[in-house]
Amino acid sequence: MSITDAYEIISEKLITWATNFIDMLPNILVAVIILILFYFLSKLARKITGKVFGKVSSNVSLVKLLGNTISLAIVVIGLFFALGVLNLDKTVTSLLAGVGVIGLALGFAFQDTAANFMSGIFLAIQKTFKVGEIIQSNGYMGVVKYINLRATIIHTFQGQEVILPNKMVFQNAIENFSDTNRRRVDLSCGISYGDDLDKVKEIATKAIQGSDFLSKEDQVDFVYTEFGDSSINFDLRFWLKDTSQSTYMHARSEAIVKLKKAFDENDIMIPFPIRTLDFGIKGGEKLNTMLKSKMD
């Protein structure tokens, strides 16, 4: 092949490409316009999503992620439309097939990550708990320090930080001690069988009433619960005006001190385990005989 023949072939190809490009110019222009329109539509959708979900959830990272996801989805749809205008249907089909295969592979590879992600979304939408609230979940109790799309971070009262995957939090029971702004102390105790039950109830109730930590809306509740082995047991229940763990612990401690002091002042006995040794039973040796033999 001579240089002249090669030149003619290249020229024909370039002319053909130029002709096709000129023929496609209207479609290319329409495709570009479609992409621009969908781009601005994606920005508008992101802004609207931020406002709408911002009212539903206080999780900023979740709101941003949802806005970005919706924005990206709109851009991808616009890209498919643009490719369709350019008669690149086979390219669109290939892209969709590739996205499907990749999505399936990623779905199997990141099952737990996806589960935590979706659980984080549901937790944020449902507003089960918020940052700063006291919760108990999966055996851990503490203050919620942070909520992201993968895990919930709890600062326990012992000083540790526990990272709980959102899947575990979402699928298991959650105790929220701050949501209702109410928290109760249940104090169990027992008195001897020789004490006056009505008197004990009156003294115990008065000992707790008027304390600074008590809620003004509720009364102190006193109930006898059972006949124990060496005592008649009761529960003393009272509500706190503050749900913090510090208030709870100090209120419980102060209630124990007040109750013990009131019982001591009124000669009411709180039984404790007593072991009785009987040396006079059949087959045994009496105490005085045993002591005399020791002295001899």
Results as ranks from 00 to 15, higher is better:
residue 140 Y to N: 15
residue 44 L to V: 13
residue 137 S to M: 05
residue 280 G to K: 12
residue 243 T to L: 02
residue 295 M to R: 10
residue 86 L to V: 06
residue 26 P to H: 08
residue 13 K to L: 15
residue 149 L to Y: 02
residue 245 Q to L: 12
residue 247 T to S: 13
residue 19 T to W: 12
residue 106 L to D: 02
residue 64 K to N: 12
residue 190 G to Q: 05
residue 101 V to P: 00
residue 216 K to L: 15
residue 2 S to Y: 12
residue 131 V to E: 02
residue 86 L to T: 06
residue 265 E to G: 11
residue 104 L to R: 07
residue 75 V to L: 13
residue 83 L to T: 02
residue 67 G to V: 11
residue 283 G to Y: 06
residue 73 A to M: 09
residue 273 P to N: 09
residue 227 F to S: 15
residue 125 I to G: 03
residue 278 D to R: 11
residue 26 P to N: 05
residue 73 A to W: 06
residue 141 M to I: 15
residue 170 F to V: 02
residue 96 L to A: 11
residue 106 L to Q: 03
residue 10 I to W: 12
residue 67 G to R: 07
residue 277 L to Y: 12
residue 83 L to K: 00
residue 134 I to R: 09
residue 197 L to P: 10
residue 126 Q to L: 05
residue 280 G to L: 07
residue 126 Q to H: 06
residue 205 T to V: 10
residue 206 K to T: 09
residue 80 F to D: 04
residue 276 T to V: 14
residue 159 G to L: 05
residue 207 A to P: 07
residue 235 D to V: 00
residue 34 I to H: 01
residue 170 F to I: 03
residue 35 L to R: 05
residue 224 Y to D: 01
residue 255 A to E: 01
residue 3 I to T: 09
residue 93 T to A: 13
residue 13 K to H: 15
residue 61 S to T: 09
residue 91 T to C: 04
residue 44 L to K: 15
residue 158 Q to V: 13
residue 9 I to R: 02
residue 60 V to N: 13
residue 119 S to I: 09
residue 291 L to A: 11
residue 218 D to S: 12
residue 231 S to F: 10
residue 145 K to A: 06
residue 160 Q to R: 15
residue 28 I to G: 05
residue 200 V to G: 00
residue 175 E to H: 14
residue 74 I to A: 03
residue 24 M to G: 08
residue 202 E to T: 11
residue 3 I to F: 13
residue 203 I to L: 01
residue 168 M to P: 02
residue 291 L to E: 09
residue 122 F to R: 07
residue 200 V to Q: 01
residue 23 D to N: 15
residue 147 I to H: 01
